[in-house]
Nucleic acid binder design. Structure first.
Lengths: 227, 227
DNA sequence: ACAAAAGTGTTGAATTTACACCCATGT
DNA sequence: ACATGGGTGTAAATTCAACACTTTTGT
């Protein structure tokens, strides 16, 4: 069997890791897991697990997330693989990374190993996980700029100033609140419901996502003008 | 040694594949390789090779490209890994894909196995390589819209209508030539040299890249307005 | 002279940006 | 009443988009 002569090439293992972002209590938050298995006991890192040799990546990820937060119902996207030979002490473990977005209300349970950390203040993580977090923040930003991705981390009913807050935290910048709100409304992606959210000052109007508007893809404007 | 108990997990192999794009004779072109090794003799696909268990991905890619085109001096970016369990007949071979951009004049040699094919008319390729090509076209488009990436596939001295042609082919659309040229000039990324390129009608002015302007990163305009 | 391709000019529309100002609430 | 955060209005500046027109070449 021809298989035999190639056997020496089949010496690698795989893992999935995910950076899951949500928005809760006015902050962007990242899900962090306390590791308990060898060789990284007592360290913290992105949620992840080893993929079995005959297991699809997507299945491994779903299994992991069911265990950890009780649902697989959230937006996700595969990012780069991390392939450095010596990134893992046990041998060559290639890491497939995902970034995910979930609204806080969709989180069904929290495994005791888990905690949320401010995305803008992530602690030191094991292996190269801080590099992965950088990648994730970048993808998150791209998602915000290019797609109506904010709604993935907002509850069903939300308020325009929260969208502003999310963008400001994601880009570490200040934006003109009044112009930003007008832009959101003009996009027709949201529709007002007849409720408000109480707060210290004037209460903010609640909106929901206008699902019909989100369908039609954005116009893909082609120009020599970089964003 | 703890290694032993994890041994059953180390059963995967890796490959690199690259979609290398250039611009030549008025067309966007993709580099295609005729395969000669088992199990895909006589098929064509993206240039690629198996990565040895202790070989860095980047090293494998460089080795491959030196062999094929005699240089590793070109822009490249890692894309998604292809991880499906059954994508390769010999076992689980995970494929790390890259897309690359090279100006035609930088290609030092052409291995006899290689040929250029119009990017908009790629033939049937082996395995899932046609899927990879789709991914590559997408990344190429994103690169064009968001970064001054065109210059990677243009010669030292180029002409504005060629940039127009590239964008039009990449996006399968027509653009207003006069407005597009004005946009390029306003970007200050190019500076005219005192030469022209002869052609049928009025000769076009030659330009070079203004390397000082390319340094300062684009302003990262944050808005609720998707491109 | 004429066709073809390159490049310039002009104009109205649309979008952006910066603020001034008004509104609805809790204390 | 007033501080606070939410929201509307407006006007100048900039960018976009369509297209008429001029320029420079080869035939």
């Amino acid at each position: 069997m021809a298989m035999f002569e190639f056997e020496h090439l089949f010496r690698g293992a795989f893992s999935v890791n995910i950076g899951l972002i949500t928005y809760h209590e006015g902050k962007l938050q990242l899900l962090i897991q306390e590791k308990e298995d060898y060789p990284s006991q007592n360290e913290t890192g992105l949620p992840g697990k080893i993929i079995l040799p005959n297991e699809e990546t997507e299945d491994a990820l779903k299994k992991l997330m069911l265990e950890l937060i009780g649902t697989t119902n959230f937006y996700r996207k595969q990012l780069n693989a991390f392939t450095k030979v010596n990134r893992h002490p046990l041998g060559r473990v290639v890491c497939f990374t995902f970034y995910g977005l979930i609204s806080f209300e969709k989180v069904k349970q929290m495994s005791s190993k888990l905690s949320w950390h401010e995305l803008n203040n992530v602690p030191n993580l094991c292996y190269d996980h801080n590099d992965i977090v950088k990648l994730i923040r970048n993808s998150f930003r791209k998602g915000l700029v290019r797609h109506p991705r904010v709604f993935e981390i907002l509850p069903e009913e939300f308020v325009l100033p929260d969208i502003l807050t999310i963008y400001q935290q994601a880009f570490l910048t200040k934006l003109d609140a009044s112009n930003f709100s007008k832009q959101i409304i003009k996009s027709e992606l949201v529709k007002p419901i007849n409720k408000t959210r109480k707060a210290f000052g004037r209460p903010a109007k609640l909106y929901t996502l206008n699902k019909s508007a989100i369908k039609k893809k954005s116009k893909e404007k082609v120009s020599f003008n970089f964003y």
